[in-house]
């Protein structure tokens, strides 16, 4: 499973101030403005991830609605260019006819192709496993979108006015699920989608630290297992699915 994640303590940590450092407005500006409490940052040595039980997930859209509300992602009524950080995908097994519905978002790969191809290093992976786009150095080349096997990223095709402060978005740059990094860096240990899934949905999602064997997500994975989408690509994503 995901215990082979390599801690990358160098620059990323420095940039994100992820090493329980002093209160700061961090250097990757705009993304981590909220970190004000030295104790309440991310957890050293953690690898954050999601576990989604597709047997429980049903015909509901709570996670999608909550995510887009939380991060100020609105529709322009232009389906081909509208950004989607998370989407519900309906799949039917051709052999058995068995149908399921599941949310797909950035899978926060351990070996993210989007990071490999990004010419400026704007796409980066934090030491705690969260893959982000630095909105200040993204030049909008979209090479990461070409490279992502999960179609997880969106390009901003127009001028935006409705951004929320903790999720800066801007015309001409690429964005994707941040695993609610603004919450994690405040010390919260859940995401908007997981929260909504529990309050309004079917309770199909769990958020947690994949590197902590005692976390709920790790215990569930140990007990029931969890598959990666396109595991054949060997990217070791931080988002796992039960019942795939």
């Amino acid at each position: 499973m995901s215990h082979d994640s390599t801690p990358d303590l160098s620059r990323r940590r420095f940039i994100t101030g992820a090493v329980g450092a002093v209160a700061s407005l961090t250097v990757a500006p705009g993304i981590f403005l909220m970190q004000t409490n030295a104790q309440a940052g991310t957890k050293p040595g953690a690898r954050w991830g999601l576990l989604i039980n597709t047997n429980v997930c049903g015909d509901c859209n709570a996670c999608v609605t909550a995510c887009h509300k939380e991060n100020g992602v609105g529709s322009m009524n232009r389906p081909t260019t509208d950004a989607q950080w998370i989407r519900k995908v309906n799949i039917t097994d051709r052999a058995t006819g068995h149908s399921r519905s599941l949310p797909v978002m950035c899978q926060h790969c351990e070996h993210p192709p989007c990071v490999d191809v990004c010419p400026t290093g704007a796409s980066f992976r934090r030491a705690d496993g969260i893959v982000l786009v630095n909105k200040h150095t993204c030049i909008g080349c979209r090479y990461c979108m070409m490279a992502c096997p999960y179609k997880a990223r969106s390009f901003i095709h127009e001028h935006l006015t409705d951004q929320v402060p903790h999720a800066p978005r801007g015309k001409g740059t690429v964005e994707s699920c941040t695993l609610c990094v603004h919450r994690i860096d405040k010390g919260e240990r859940t995401t908007a989608c997981v929260e909504a899934c529990h309050t309004e949905g079917n309770g199909a999602m769990v958020f947690g630290d994949l590197n902590d064997p005692n976390s709920e997500i790790s215990r569930r994975l140990a007990e029931y297992g969890g598959a990666a989408i396109r595991a054949d690509l060997g990217l070791n994503p931080g988002v796992r699915y039960q019942g795939l």
Partner: peptide
């Protein structure tokens, strides 16, 4: 998307990127 950031492309390199 941001041609105005050409200078960023000239000053920030990710050497893993073929781009």
């Amino acid at each position: 998307g941001r041609p105005d950031r050409l200078i960023v492309a000239m000053t920030h390199y990710n050497f893993k990127s073929i781009f």
